[in-house]
């Protein structure tokens, strides 16, 4: 049971949140101009590192805001929590 620091509400149990996978995945600026392989990368390929990962969570049972954290996928330690508009 992770303890996740919501930048708006503070530390809350994982069960209050919804996971959103890797953060900072760029939506193609003009999807119509990219080729199938590039589009498929956007759709299906996400970072899956063994170690620190910037990822998105939504405090769905709380303030319902999306935000980012940096979490280590081996230790589950959370190093950083920041709002969507903050720089990675």
């Amino acid at each position: 049971m992770l303890l996740i620091p919501c930048p708006w509400c503070g530390q809350r149990d994982e069960i209050e949140f919804r996971y959103g996978g890797a953060a900072h995945v760029e939506y193609p600026a003009d999807p119509e101009t990219v080729d199938d392989a590039t589009w498929a990368r956007y759709l299906f390929v996400r970072p899956n590192p063994k170690g620190p990962l910037a990822e998105r969570w939504c405090h769905s049972q709380g303030c319902r805001r999306w935000f980012n954290i940096v979490r280590d996928t081996v230790t589950h330690q959370i190093m950083r929590s920041y709002r969507m508009e903050e720089a990675p």
């Binding site: 049971m1 992770l2 990822e55 979490r71 081996v74 230790t75 589950h76």
Partner: peptide, 13 residues
Amino acid sequence: DPFISYAQRGSPH
């Protein structure tokens, strides 16, 4: 568990 992990463990809920 919904999140990415290599820890070979998950959450109790």
